[in-house]
Computed example of a mutant assay.
Amino acid sequence: MREKLKEFLRYLRIERKLSENTIDAYRLDIQRYIDYLDNIGIRDFRFVTALTIQNYLKLLGELGLVPSSVSRNVSSIRSFHRFLADENYIEKDPSELIQSPRLPQRLPTVLSLDEIERILGAIEDNTAIGIRDRAIVETLYSTGVRVSELVNIKTGDVFLKESFIRVFGKGAKERLVPFGERAKRELLKYVNGVRPGLARKRKSKDFLFLNFKGEPLTRIGVWKLIQKYVRKADIRKRVSPHVFRHSFATHLIEGGANLRAVQEMLGHADISTTQIYTHLDRNYLIEVHKRFHPRW
């Protein structure tokens, strides 16, 4: 299947004379599509149906890709299948009737890397609460965890040496999520230098993130601190903790990360097939995170 992709890219370069940047965008889109087909057991393009493509596009949306990006993927997949049909590799083009998603008036909010840097830059790193808040923001963006998952992380769930956090998601499903070196640095500063001073024997209950009273931080508490730093950074978007999850997924996917790996890190059930969900190797997740996350 990957040989067909190479032929398609040669066709784009030689016959359609597209720029290298455009060809790279096609390559990323189709490579990710082929990875998906491989994951669901399709090894020949003749077995791809319109439903296969629709399920794939639905998965992109579920993982946080904005409609404009999904539309670009539709265009890439259509061009690829048209090429396969023209070259007689397939009898019928399954993408022929696939529609691009309508773009809603309000798109899901995704922060740019520059905006994330500005939010982090607005947090003082010379106070105990500032160090805690930097660790929170870095953890949200580096792991893509839900805010409900973040506030329930215990100190025993953080494996700093291995760069993993154990998270209990919806339905109490456990997963291990990698985090990058920048998040690791901030977590180390918080865990070793700040949390011991915040902790109170009967109040803290081994929760990782604590408020100034030594109690576990709540979802509302995280929301409030995010709002404070968004205002300080003069960002005009509506930003909630969940926006960091959208941004995490979007930046990884747009960078070329394997969809199955992103799906695993987000803790999504497999919405495209009924096959048994198999977990990916931890070392592979770290490699994907390291290669494609902008703030490793």
Score class of each variant (00 low, 15 high):
residue 3 E to V: 10
residue 4 K to Y: 14
residue 4 K to H: 12
residue 12 L to G: 06
residue 18 L to V: 03
residue 21 N to K: 06
residue 24 D to F: 14
residue 33 Y to I: 02
residue 37 L to K: 06
residue 38 D to C: 05
residue 43 R to K: 14
residue 53 I to W: 00
residue 55 N to C: 10
residue 58 K to L: 15
residue 59 L to P: 08
residue 59 L to T: 02
residue 60 L to I: 03
residue 63 L to Q: 15
residue 64 G to S: 02
residue 65 L to R: 04
residue 70 V to E: 09
residue 70 V to F: 01
residue 73 N to P: 02
residue 74 V to Q: 05
residue 74 V to L: 12
residue 79 S to Q: 14
residue 79 S to I: 14
residue 80 F to A: 05
residue 81 H to S: 01
residue 82 R to V: 08
residue 87 E to R: 15
residue 91 E to N: 12
residue 94 P to V: 01
residue 98 I to M: 09
residue 98 I to R: 11
residue 100 S to M: 13
residue 100 S to A: 15
residue 102 R to T: 13
residue 102 R to Y: 12
residue 106 R to W: 02
residue 120 L to P: 12
residue 131 I to V: 15
residue 135 A to E: 02
residue 138 E to L: 05
residue 147 V to F: 02
residue 155 T to G: 14
residue 157 D to Y: 02
residue 170 K to L: 09
residue 178 P to G: 04
residue 179 F to T: 08
residue 179 F to S: 07
residue 189 K to F: 04
residue 190 Y to N: 04
residue 195 R to I: 03
residue 196 P to T: 06
residue 204 S to L: 08
residue 204 S to N: 14
residue 205 K to T: 06
residue 209 F to M: 09
residue 211 N to V: 03
residue 212 F to C: 00
residue 216 P to C: 11
residue 227 Q to F: 03
residue 233 A to K: 03
residue 242 H to L: 05
residue 256 G to I: 01
residue 256 G to D: 11
residue 259 L to D: 02
residue 270 D to W: 07
residue 270 D to S: 12
residue 273 T to P: 03
residue 273 T to V: 11
residue 276 I to V: 15
residue 284 Y to M: 05
residue 284 Y to A: 11
residue 287 E to H: 06
residue 289 H to R: 06
